[in-house]
């Protein structure tokens, strides 16, 4: 229950102040049907996530900090956290089907995790001027030029060979996407807070922002390089694909570069 489930999409970089205010308003209001204890539960996981401490959100921490359990708390025999998380998830679903249907920011608690995710209502795309050229590769590049692309490397870190190929794949895709005119951001490790803040700041800008997730998987024949693209604010899935690199170790660099160029073109087409 405590393990983070793998996600095919990047989590939203958080516009912390905006999300924080929306969540405080949600928890304080009467429209969301929750007990006081479960309001504290929801506030706790939201606050910890916004403070950059999502890694601390485990059943044990919630049991001790929210439910007042002792240091000997055992979620196996005392499943209070799991049960109340289910009740919160159900209450949120009912709220978003009714009073909260128009909320600009939604909080999700997915089964199997206590770490909340935030969804942003889709913003209107900037309108093209009358008579604007909307076709051809040059139009794709112009579309890409006003678009930020947040690239996240999601290869399983336990597979060291796949990670090495994944790093090559990442570098090649970043270079190829920049060549298509995107403003490219790579989701940084937690230690690089400045870069993380720059990505969060993107959500305050009117331009379109998209998330590109990359991952390499070890398969019997070699390596599978996969990508998926989504609108960062709405979570709308825009496309994905993969290619299998078959044969020797390490993989052929030119092959990775070709695939990266293909990914960048496909992304430019998808957002054009």
């Amino acid at each position: 229950m405590d393990a983070d489930p793998p996600s095919p999409m990047a989590p939203h970089p958080l516009a912390e102040q905006e999300v924080g205010e929306a969540m405080r308003s949600l928890v304080a209001g009467n429209a969301l049907r929750l007990s006081e204890r479960n309001r504290r539960f929801l506030s706790f996981v939201v606050d910890e996530t916004l403070a950059g401490r999502a890694g601390r959100i485990k059943a044990y921490a919630i049991g001790v900090d929210v439910f007042g359990r002792g240091s000997d708390f055992d979620p196996g025999t005392d499943p209070i956290v799991r049960i109340e998380a289910t009740r919160i998830r159900t209450a949120l679903a009912a709220y978003y089907e009714g009073a909260g249907a128009q909320d600009a920011i939604r909080v999700l608690l997915r089964p199997g995790s206590y770490i909340p995710e935030f969804e942003f209502a889709r913003a209107a795309s900037p309108a093209l001027p009358p008579g604007a050229d909307t076709g051809g590769p040059q139009a794709d590049q112009r579309a890409a030029a006003r678009t930020a692309l947040v690239v996240t490397h999601r290869t399983d870190r336990r597979d060291r060979c796949a990670v090495a190929t994944g790093e090559l794949y990442l570098q090649a895709v970043v270079r190829a996407a920049a060549g298509q005119g995107f403003r490219v951001f790579v989701t940084p490790p937690p230690a690089r807070r400045a870069a993380a803040q720059a990505i969060r700041a993107l959500l305050h800008h009117p331009e379109d922002v998209y998330a590109l997730d990359l991952a390499v998987f070890g398969i019997a024949e070699g390596r599978r390089c996969a990508w998926s693209l989504c609108d960062l604010r709405s979570g709308e899935f825009l496309g994905s694909d993969f290619v299998d690199l078959v044969g020797g170790e390490p993989p052929e660099a030119a092959g990775i570069d070709r695939q990266a160029a293909s990914v960048a073109r496909r992304v430019a087409d998808a957002v054009a």
Partner: peptide
């Protein structure tokens, strides 16, 4: 599916009470 999740939570609650 939310109803089934609540059934699961109900079972866990009853089992914990019995434990």
């Amino acid at each position: 599916p939310y109803f089934l999740e609540l059934c699961d939570a109900y079972e866990a609650t009853c089992e914990a009470a019995e434990y």
